[in-house]
């Protein structure tokens, strides 16, 4: 995909997202009942809902208009399946994520970390008929779910699932909320774990760890992006996934507290050691070596 297209379209994407949701932090706590604020937002939300109800072509035309993108392919990666059902789209099973991840293995992280990249991909896929094309099925895939009786919630569901909602949820949103992006990242990181451990931790095992519990995934991403960026060193992440895999095997489940506990240990270790130069046995808890005199 052309990076210039992303750069040119970025501010329009931002403007569109900011204009179509109500945010008490931005609009003010007491403006939820102020029609001067809420009426324009409501109209924009209704316009989006109408486009979704009218089917795939109307929806892609709506998005192109909002982003001011002319006709033509946008260069989205090839979709490995002819079509996804709403259920598959909303909650991709492990096997589907593997299929998507393998098909899109060449994508670069400078693109896949951008919410707008994924929205442009969805426009391409809509035009290629990769989702069930009727308005009813599109609504089920893109807007149904938590709080979907309210227009605001349906709108937010759409924004989250097709690109992420960075204006409200920050830079973790693309990793947590955009379903295709989340699938790609889980596979990509699982693949990286297998490579960096020379197969000690299999890609399938790592992928299962990242896929098994949504709050645990979100916690890992939030910590990797904002709080403990040292765990992005590939060997550190591999060791964290390895420890989570052990817990998943012994207990049958993992949750976000497991992620919090393990990443905290690595955050502390990262202050003192380079994970790239530490043996795998030390990283995975075989040794608790500390320098004899390092007291600072």
């Amino acid at each position: 995909m052309d990076r210039h297209l992303l750069e040119r379209t970025g501010s329009r994407f931002d403007e569109w997202q900011r204009g179509i949701i109500f945010q008490s932090t931005r609009h003010g706590k007491w403006t939820a009942a102020d029609p001067r604020i809420t009426n324009p937002i409501r109209k924009r939300q209704e316009e989006l809902q109408a486009a979704i109800s009218a089917g795939a072509h109307a929806l892609s035309a709506y998005l192109r208009k909002k982003l001011q993108i002319s006709q033509g392919e946008l260069g989205a990666p090839r979709f490995p399946r002819p079509r996804l059902t709403p259920r598959e789209f909303q909650d991709p099973p492990l096997e589907l994520e593997e299929e998507l991840g393998k098909a899109w293995i060449g994508l670069r992280t400078s693109l896949t970390s951008q919410p707008l990249f994924w929205l442009l991909c969805h426009i391409d896929w809509l035009e290629q008929g990769r989702f069930d094309v009727t308005g009813h099925h599109l609504a089920e895939a893109f807007t149904a779910g938590h709080g979907d009786t309210k227009r605001e919630a349906r709108t937010r569901n759409f924004l989250r699932r097709t690109s992420g909602l960075p204006v409200a949820r920050g830079n973790t949103s693309v990793f947590s909320d955009c379903l295709m992006a989340r699938s790609w990242w889980r596979y990509h990181l699982a693949d990286q774990v297998e490579k960096v451990t020379a197969g000690r931790v299999r890609r399938r095992t790592a992928h299962r760890v990242l896929h098994t519990n949504r709050p645990a995934w979100e916690e890992l991403i939030m910590r990797s992006l904002r709080r403990i960026t040292v765990i992005n060193q590939p060997r550190a992440r591999a060791a964290i996934v390895h420890q989570l895999a052990s817990r998943l095997e012994s207990r049958g489940h993992i949750d976000k507290k497991d992620v919090q506990g393990i990443t905290l240990v690595f955050a502390r270790q990262g202050l003192r050691r380079s994970f790239e130069h530490t043996s795998w046995e030390d990283l995975t808890g075989g040794s608790r070596t500390t320098p004899s005199s390092a007291t600072t």
Partner: peptide, 8 residues
């Protein structure tokens, strides 16, 4: 124009 499309 503000651009938070990147999350930043």
């Amino acid at each position: 124009k503000p651009d938070r499309s990147s999350g930043r």
